[in-house]
């Protein structure tokens, strides 16, 4: 022991000059830690967003359709005055909220069942079942919904004997499909939060005279609030930005903000850029509201 220890001690002091350098200079350490992520964040993320915002103030030459740098508020004026655009913005907002509410309505009872009632085996199966859609491709899932709800599709075939015909390609189908896509982002935080509620709070609530629904309203929901908001940030913002679902299962009357941006990307980039500000504004407002409740600290 002593033989090996004595030569290694001075070597440890002399060698690894880089470590010593980093140890002495706090700024170098920080630079080493942050240079890569900061390049990514600032260089790609922020700069591209800023470019987008700048483009919104440019205009295009009506004859050549070439984008000309400059400053005009006409693009925004168009976005806020064209009735079709306003309807589409409100429709998109409505769809995103509906998807969020629907996801929450499914996630809460499922989470209570999984966390408090299911056997460990069934819990594992359900956890896999919830996350499974995340493994499948985005387009695959949309096409699956398309096949289900198309005119001669599975849903209509199943319901035909009862005289019920499905929603076809409509806003409702868009909401269902988006819920299908983003449900895991709501279900997982909600399930985790319910697991963290001690069982004896349910017992205590019943003991003090509360029935099942009262317990859910007065004990479970308040404790779930942060998880619900965290999940809703995903369901809401992901729905807000989507346009492929509207395109494939939305039919003619379910255009979303994304649809309009997509159709303008080549025709009129400044208008597309101006319109992109709307979902960004919705999300920022949503985040500010949720931030006030402290929910984001849980993410």
């Amino acid at each position: 022991m002593t033989v090996t220890a004595s030569p290694s001690a001075p070597r440890a002091a002399q060698s690894k000059p880089l470590s010593t350098l980093l140890y002495r200079h706090r700024w170098l350490r920080l630079a080493g830690l942050l240079s890569l992520p900061l390049t990514w964040l600032v260089g790609l993320y922020i700069v591209s967003l800023v470019l987008l915002l700048v483009t919104a103030f440019w205009f295009i030459d009506p004859f050549t359709s070439k984008v000309i740098p400059g400053f005009t508020l006409e693009n925004f004026a168009l976005v806020f005055s064209e009735p079709a655009y306003i309807t589409t913005s409100l429709r998109t907002l409505g769809i995103a909220l509906a998807v969020t509410l629907l996801s929450a309505a499914f996630a809460i009872p499922l989470g209570i069942f999984m966390a408090k009632l299911a056997s460990p085996w069934l819990r594992a199966v359900l956890a896999v079942a919830i996350t499974l859609p995340l493994w499948a491709g985005y387009l695959v899932k949309i096409l699956a919904m398309r096949i289900t709800f198309t005119e001669e599709g599975f849903f209509n075939w199943l319901m035909a004997p009862f005289g019920i015909s499905g929603p076809g390609f409509s806003i409702l189908t868009v909401v269902l499909t988006l819920t299908y896509l983003w449900f895991p982002y709501m279900a997982l935080p909600v399930y985790t939060a319910i697991r963290q509620i001690p069982v004896n709070l349910f017992d205590a609530s019943a003991d003090l005279g509360a029935r099942g629904f009262t317990t859910i309203r007065t004990v479970v929901l308040p404790l779930l609030w942060p998880a619900l908001l965290a999940g809703s940030v995903f369901t809401f913002s992901l729905s807000l930005g989507d346009y492929i679902v509207a395109r494939f299962v939305g039919g003619a009357n379910a255009q979303m903000i994304g649809s309009i941006i997509a159709s303008n990307i080549n025709l009129n980039p400044p208008v597309a850029a101006a319109f992109s500000v709307i979902p960004i504004a919705f999300v920022v407002i949503y985040l500010v509201v949720t931030r006030r409740t402290g929910a984001l600290e849980r993410m």
């Binding site: 017992d203 205590a204 609530s205 019943a206 003991d207 029935r211």
Partner: peptide
């Protein structure tokens, strides 16, 4: 059901609503 019984419980780890 528990809510129909004229008993109340003090729990081991108190079970206060956080």
């Amino acid at each position: 059901a528990p809510f129909d019984r004229t008993v109340n419980t003090v729990f081991q780890d108190y079970a206060l609503f956080p």
